[in-house]
Design a binder for these strands. Structure first.
Lengths: 182, 182
DNA sequence: GGTTGCATGTAAATGGTTACATGATTGT
DNA sequence: ACAATCATGTAACCATTTACATGCAACC
C-alpha cells in the first residue's frame, strides 16, 4: 500500500494529525502491517489535502505545539474504496534478522545467541502489548488482523525458543573430550 | 539488507549469475527473507565488480544466452563479514493483504472471502514447496530459517482457516429469519 | 542538564521498481 | 502461434529514508 492509501485508511476510522497517524503505525495494530516515517506522511497529507481527499483544520493547543487535524472527505472515501478493490500486491518482507540467521556459520555463536534472544524478547514484548488491548470491542477487521498477528508472532517466538539451543550446539560443537591416552 | 550485501551473501555460498541470484530469492528459501528485481541486481553486480568485491567471468553457453558468472573475492568476504556484524535493522513488512483485511467492513464479503481463500492457497503451496526440499542436508543456518518460515506460514494458514467463516458471518449477518406472524 | 514526548515540515540523497530493449529455445 | 524460460542490461520514474530545522513542556 502506498502512503496515500494508508493515510486515507487511518482517517476513515476517525480524524487525526500526521503525528497521530505515524503513532498509529508504531504502536497500534498496524505495526506488523506497514511502517512509515514523518518524511513520507507529512508531504502525503499535504498532497491529499490539495487533491480534496482530506480536509485539514489547524488546531491550537494548550502547552503543546499546534496541530493539524485532518478529516477524510467523501471523495477520499471513494478513493479508499477503489484502492480496496484493487488486487493486493504481494507482501514485501525485508528481514535483516533472517538474512543474518541464514548465514549463521559466518557469525560467531555468541553474537547469534544475542541476535536470537533479542528477537525472542521483542516478540514477547509485542505479544504482551497485542494481547493486552483486548479491551475495546473492536471492529471485525482489526480483531481478525490482531488475531493473525498474535498467532504468527507466537509461532515465531515458540520456534526460536524451541530450536535456539540446537542451532547453537551444532555451530559450536562441544569439543569432544579428547582422551589423553587409550 | 541492501542489495549489495544480499548479492555478496548469495555469492558467498557459491558462484552465480545475476539471473540465478534473482531466482534464489524467488524460489529458494530466501523467498520470505527478501525480494529483489533485476533492475536492482544487475547494477549492483556491476558496482560490486568495480569495487573488487566480486569477480565476473563471461560464460558462453550452448543454446542459451551467454551469462556472467560471478565469484566473491576475499575483499568481498570481508565486506560481508562486516555487514553481518552490524546490528540488524528491524524487519520491514508491507502487506496489502493485511491492510485490506483491517478494513474488512469496507469490503464486500464476497471479495473478502476470495482474498482470504487465495491467501490460504498461497500459504499451502509455499508450505508444500518448503517442506519438499528436505532433501539436502543443508547448512544449519538455512535449515533454521526454513524451519522458522514453515512454522510461521503454518500458523498463518491455520489461523485463516480457523477464523475465516466467523469473520464472514459477522460481516454479512445471516438475516434473522423473520417470523411472518406471531 | 539531558532526554523524551509533542508537533510540523523541507531537502537531499538513496534506493528500488517498472518498463523498455533484445533474442534464442522449448513447451502447449 | 503464443507463452514461458533463459539471460543481460539501461533509463526514467517513484517512493522513502535520513538529516536538518525549530521549540516548548515534562520528567529524571
Amino acid at each position: 500500500m502506498d502512503t496515500k492509501t494508508l493515510c486515507l485508511g487511518v482517517l476513515s476510522l476517525g480524524d487525526a494529525s500526521g503525528y497521530e497517524i505515524k503513532k498509529a503505525f508504531e504502536e497500534g495494530p498496524f505495526g506488523h502491517i506497514h511502517e512509515t516515517s514523518f518524511g513520507s506522511i507529512y508531504p502525503t497529507l499535504t498532497r491529499l489535502s490539495e487533491e480534496g481527499l482530506i480536509a485539514g483544520t489547524e488546531l491550537a493547543q494548550d502547552k503543546r505545539p499546534d496541530k493539524k487535524v485532518y478529516s477524510i472527505t467523501e471523495a477520499g472515501r471513494a478513493t479508499l474504496q477503489e484502492a480496496l478493490l484493487a488486487s493486493p500486491a504481494r507482501d514485501r518482507v525485508r528481514s535483516d534478522f533472517l538474512f543474518m540467521l541464514f548465514f549463521a556459520d559466518q557469525v560467531s555463536p555468541r553474537r547469534l545467541a544475542r541476535l536470537i534472544d533479542d528477537r525472542i524478547a521483542w516478540y514477547r514484548e509485542n505479544l504482551a502489548r497485542m494481547e493486552a488491548c483486548d479491551c475495546e470491542p473492536t471492529a471485525s477487521g482489526p480483531a481478525f488482523v490482531r488475531g493473525l498477528g498474535i498467532a504468527v508472532y507466537r509461532a515465531a517466538a515458540e520456534y526460536l525458543e524451541a530450536n535456539r539451543d540446537e542451532l547453537l550446539d551444532r555451530l559450536s560443537p562441544r569439543a569432544e573430550p579428547k582422551r589423553i591416552a587409550g
